[in-house]
Amino acid sequence: MKGPLAKTAILLVGMYVFLKFILPLFTAPLPASLIFLYLALTFASAMIFYTMSGGGLDEFMGPVGRFLTGSGQAGIAGTARILVFILFPLLVGWQAYTRLAPSDMPPAENRTIHPAPPGEFVGLANPYPRTQENIMMGKGLYAAFCSPCHGANFDGKGPAAVGFNPPPANFSDPGTIAQLQESYLFWRIKKGGVGLPVEAMPWKSAMPRWEVELPDEWIWKIIMGEYDGAGQSPRTWEEEE
C-alpha cells in the first residue's frame, strides 16, 4: 500500500471520518452534499499533486488499470474485481430506479424562518421606555392576544399551537427573538403572516395581521413584555452596545 492511489484512498477515508464523525464533536454536523464536495476537492488535489510531481499519471492510474484488466490477479483482488464489475451496473440500475420511481413524499419545503424585513421596518427603536409599568402592560396584552398560540410561558406551546404548521415561535429559544431586533418583531406582529415575503411561505402562517386590531403602542409594549417574559434581550447594533 505504497502507491499514490493507495495514499489517496487513505487520505479520502481519513478526511471522511474527520468530516463526518470528528468535526461534529466541535460544531454543527455538515450536510452530506458538503462532505461530498470536500472529498471531491481532496481527490482533485491529490490527483493534481501526484500527476505534477514525479511519476505522473501512469503511476497514479496504473493500479486502476491493472485492477480493471485483471492482469496478474488472484484471490481477494480477483473477487473484488468481479464484485466491482457486477456492482457497478446494479448501482446504475438502482440509481435509475430511485430517480424515476414516483415518490410518495410531498415536495420538500425550504421555508426561510427569519426573512429580511421591508426597509421601513429596519432599525426602528422602541419609542416607549422600558419601565416596569410598560412591561407589565405588555405582558397583559401578550396574555390576551398572543398566549393562545405562543404560550403563557413564551415557549410556543399555547393551547392552539398544536394545529399549526409552521408552529408558533418559541420565544424562550435563543434562536428566535434573541437573534432579532425589536423593529423586526414590530414588523412581524404588525403585518402578521400575510406580510411575509415569498421565501417564508406566507400562505401557511396563521399569525394575524395585528395592525388591524391593535394600535402601534400596544405592539411595542407587547414586544417589551415578550422579551422580559422569555428572559431574552433584543439584538442590538454593535455600536449601540
Binding site: 451496473p89 446494479l90 440500475g93 435509475a96 430506479y97 414516483p102 410531498p106 409552521p166 401557511k204 396563521a206
Partner: peptide, 26 residues
C-alpha cells in the same frame, strides 16, 4: 394548516425498462 394531497398514479412499468437499459449501458 395547509397539508398535501395526492391521487395515487397508476403503476408505471416503463421504469423497469429504463433500469434494464441503465444496467446494460453500464
Amino acid at each position: 394548516s395547509w397539508w398535501y394531497i395526492r391521487a395515487e398514479p397508476p403503476p408505471d412499468n416503463s421504469i423497469y425498462g429504463y433500469v434494464v437499459l441503465g444496467i446494460v449501458l453500464a
